[in-house]
Design a protein around this nucleic acid. Structure first.
Length: 828
RNA sequence: GCGAGGGUGGCGGAACUGGUAGACGCGCUAGAUUUAGGAUCUAGUGGGUAACUCCCAUGGGGGUUCGAGUCCCCCCUCUCGCACCA
């Protein structure tokens, strides 16, 4: 193989990238009559550089987009930047570079990377979340929610990350620690802005059912997060004042077993309970301590339970019993009403607490065939049984009693059916600089006033002292804070919090349809035509955060009549991580594999091929540096074969005639090619298993490589095979395929070619290999024609030399034959 | 603890409704070529065995079946999610 045109990947790759850009391959055509296909990959956060894990994500999206182009779709494949956020600000502080500068540098670097991979986008639609022409509309989103009463400010105990010096949404707290920096999260009482996502809890839960093409795993995570539970709100009363003390329970059948009640340390009623209380100091000290516990301390599953008696009592409405009222760290203010009716006999937490503080235990459900006694119990009994000590309900199975007790309570006005959710409102305030300012003004006279739409954007001021971390950075910019009230015109102050970056990303997929429109965020008509997104691709780490928020915002827009669909993403694909040295790639672990070195050595197509070949895309895959070369070898061999035969193949047409008229060698190749077209198409359509698709093309090429064409007919067959391979591989390794396509004498671009079709007749096998088994063990093989009859095959099997050796001297008791597969002879 | 998904050669991974276990690739071995190295080409490559047409082998143990990586039961292990939610 001397003196042949080398596979000069770097030259050829940049040549074709320029060509695609010039011919507008990835430009969406607004007026086309073709079927639309919106292919969306999660836009990246511009953190610096992308590693091969990111590359897998974008290559996947690119394969889908290119495949759909070849299937004749009008494809929209946009790209943008989730460019606001804390990491940029933190990095800016560390390196003393303004976040705007840092972000734009990072965007430039990452865009260069994306381009170098050959992943195609409609760059004319690029959006950047930190640009005023984008965040203007993020602020508009805020105003829309405000007008609908879905944005509000309140004082609440919120998650505070001392290291990031800002509050966090519930979704951003992982195991009691900050999602970004891992620092332990504290609770703080602060005035904060929220989006009322809880109003949509039920809808968000119900509509998961519609998302047929979402991974079950993601839906389960969202279901858990929303955390719906059905139960009863029971109106206990304070003994002293008669004041209502409602609590939520899912077990009304255990109401007669309540032996004490417990308040969350944050519960507002505590304030009144301590007035004139002889143990006031002690109680307040406890409350203070409990409230200062970090979230990890408090929410760990086996955290020690601690409590204190308030000296007050509560009355159980169902039996008028008087029970002690306690405060304990295991009760959460955010869930239910912040009050728990404690049934130690039938709830493990209450049981542990009762034992610890010597509180009474009363059994009200006896399991079948057992007799629980409070003193002997080692743990709470949470199963089913028969009611005891439950007044008129004694003797009923507890399941039935639940309903009866509930009915009676409702009749007597002691409580009612209720539903509780774990989902809490979305905390969107951030006391940081690098985000979209919340468009609100505080006026002494008019109160909280939204900035009118016409006055948007509220520009983020260009501050110089972004390094000081004390307090909210915007609060120190006088020019920014001091403004006029939009209503009365008097001097007023601006809100100094910025918005959580998840607000930016909760609507970006709409903006891609009209990224430059300065009159509105998006055009409803266009958006309704293009959405829901046909295919969304991204990491599973966004299963709750981004995907739940986006669903929420879409539903709000739907209710406002701004969009005509209720779910933004029809199909969701969550790709697996690339693992290196047993761990997810991250800068902190130092196991990041950069795509640059690979591209330099082997080219982008080799990188792409390896990323697709490494395993099924939904699964995690282990990165192996040295395995990359396999893809390169394959591409080089393919290249050489095409170059070597190009001159003689260019004048001939690919074979399209009858299979049966072909001579043996050619027929074999032609059939194999047809079969592979069929298989690859199936792999792409049904499961996205590109690894097996590539494997069968490799296997085909191993055969084609040895095939030497002499006469015209065999050249035609070779052309059919090489063109087939080129077309089949083109979404995976686009540059080399485009070049080979042209080398074979075709017009670019290959991506405006139709996806190859196959001839069902030609895809058939001429000879089948029938496996011969004796007692289930393989003893031989038989080559037969596909139309050989079953009896004929059985006879041949019994007559086979190797088989005979194993059945000799034994009795054949059964012969099982599986059509076109095997014959199993059972002997004794 | 609960829920989901995994466990197949030295490695990444194949195997449709039960029907040839290990496709394809990496690595490895031998040979060819080369001043050498690299690259390339040819052949081989799950384990056992002198060898085989033999035996064993899909985390472990049982079972169903003519036949089990695949179905059923028990157990071990890894990853992820949830986890005092009343």
């Amino acid at each position: 193989m001397h003196n042949e045109t080398p596979y000069n990947f770097s030259e050829l790759e940049s040549k074709w990238r320029e060509y695609w850009e010039k011919c507008g391959l990835f430009r969406m055509q607004p007026d086309s009559a073709k079927e639309k296909f919106y292919c969306l990959v999660m836009f990246p956060y511009p953190s610096g550089t992308l590693h091969v894990g990111h590359a897998r994500n974008y290559v996947l999206g690119d394969v889908v987009a290119r495949y759909k182009l070849m299937k004749g779709c009008n494809v929209l494949s946009p790209m943008g930047w989730d460019a606001f956020g804390l990491p940029a600000e933190n990095a800016a502080i560390k390196e003393n570079i303004h976040p705007a500068v840092l972000t734009s540098n990072n965007i430039a670097a990452m865009k260069r990377q994306l381009l170098s991979w050959g992943t195609g986008y409609d760059w004319a639609r690029e959006v950047t979340a930190c640009n005023p022409d984008y965040y203007k509309w993020t602020q508009w989103v805020f105003l829309k929610l405000w007008k609908k009463g879905l944005a509000y400010k309140r004082k609440a105990a919120v998650n505070w990350c001392p290291s990031c010096a800002t509050v966090l949404a519930n979704e951003q707290v992982v195991d009691g620690c900050c999602e970004r920096c891992d620092h332990a999260v504290m609770q703080k009482d602060l005035e904060q802005w929220f989006f009322k996502i809880t109003d949509y809890a039920q809808k968000l839960l119900d509509d998961l059912e519609r998302l047929e093409h979402w991974p079950e795993r993601v839906k389960t995570m969202q279901r858990n997060w929303i955390g719906r539970s059905e139960g009863v709100r029971v109106d206990f009363r304070m003994e002293s004042t008669g004041e209502l003390l409602p609590c939520f329970t899912t077990r009304p059948d255990t109401l007669y077993g309540v032996t004490f009640m417990v308040l969350a340390p944050e519960h507002p009623v505590i304030e009144t309970l301590v007035v004139g209380n002889p143990r006031k100091e002690e109680i307040l000290r406890f409350v203070e301590k409990a409230r200062n516990e970090s979230l990890i301390e408090r929410s760990a599953a086996n955290a020690p339970k601690e409590g204190i008696f308030t000296g007050h009592y509560a009355i159980n409405p169902v039996n008028e019993e008087k029970v002690q009222l306690w405060i304990a760290n295991y009760v959460l203010m955010e869930y239910g009403t912040g009050v728990v009716m404690a049934v130690p006999a039938h709830d493990q937490r209450d049981f542990e607490f009762a034992r610890q503080y010597g509180l009474p235990i009363k059994v009200v459900i006896q399991p079948e065939g057992e007799s629980l006694s409070p003193d002997a119990m080692k743990e709470a009994y949470t199963g089913d049984g028969v009611q005891v000590n439950s007044g008129q309900f004694d003797g009923l199975p507890n399941r039935a009693a639940m309903e009866k007790i509930l009915e009676r309570m409702e009749r007597m006005n002691q409580g009612k059916r209720d539903v509780s959710y774990k989902l809490r409102d979305w905390l969107i305030s951030r006391q940081r600089y690098w985000g979209a300012p919340i468009p609100i003004v505080y006026c002494k006279k008019c109160g909280t006033v939204p900035v009118p739409e016409a006055d948007l954007p509220v520009l983020l001021p260009d501050i110089k002292d972004f390094r000081s971390t004390k307090g909210s950075p915007l609060a120190k910019v006088e020019d920014f804070i001091n403004t006029r009230c939009p209503q009365c015109g008097k001097s007023a102050r601006r809100e100094t919090d910025t918005m959580d970056t998840f607000v930016d990303s909760s609507w970006y997929y709409l903006r891609y349809l009209s990224p430059k429109d300065d009159k509105r965020a998006f055009d409803s008509g266009t958006v309704n035509k293009w959405l829901p997104v046909d295919q969304y691709i991204g990491g599973v780490e966004h299963a709750i955060l981004h995907l739940l928020y986006s669903r929420f915002i879409t539903k709000v827009f739907y209710d406002l009549g701004l969009v005509g669909f209720q779910e933004p993403f029809q199909n969701l694909f969550t790709q697996g991580m690339i693992i290196k040295d047993g761990a997810k790639m991250s800068k902190s672990k130092g196991n990041v594999v950069s795509p640059e070195a690979i591209i330099k050595k082997y080219g982008a197509d080799t990188l792409r091929l390896y990323l697709l070949f490494i395993g099924p895309p939904e699964k995690d895959a282990e990165w192996t540096d040295r395995a990359v070369v396999g893809g390169f070898r394959f591409l080089t061999r393919l290249w050489q074969k095409v170059i070597r035969h190009a001159d003689e193949l260019r004048p001939v047409k690919k074979w399209e005639g009858d299979v049966t008229s072909l001579p043996d060698d050619s027929r074999r190749i032609y059939r194999a090619t047809n079969r592979v077209i069929k298989e690859v198409t199936k792999d792409i359509e049904s499961s996205w298993h590109f690894n097996t698709a590539i494997a069968v093309v490799m296997a085909l090429f191993n055969q084609v490589e040895r095939f030497e064409a002499g006469d015209t007919v065999s050249k035609q067959v070779l052309r059919h095979a090489l063109e087939g391979v080129t077309l089949l591989l083109s979404p995976f390794v686009p540059h080399i395929c485009e070049e080979m396509w042209k080398t074979l004498g075709n017009e670019p671009t290959i991506f405006r070619q139709a996806w190859p079709s196959y001839d069902e007749e030609a895809a058939k096998q001429e000879q089948l290999e029938i496996v011969l088994q004796v007692n289930g063990k393989v003893r031989g093989r038989l080559a037969v024609s596909p139309d050989a009859g079953e009896d004929e095959i059985k006879a041949m099997a019994l007559d086979d030399e190797k088989v005979k050796a194993f059945i000799d001297g034994k009795t054949v008791v059964n012969v099982i034959s599986v059509r076109q597969k095997l014959v199993n002879i059972v002997v004794k």
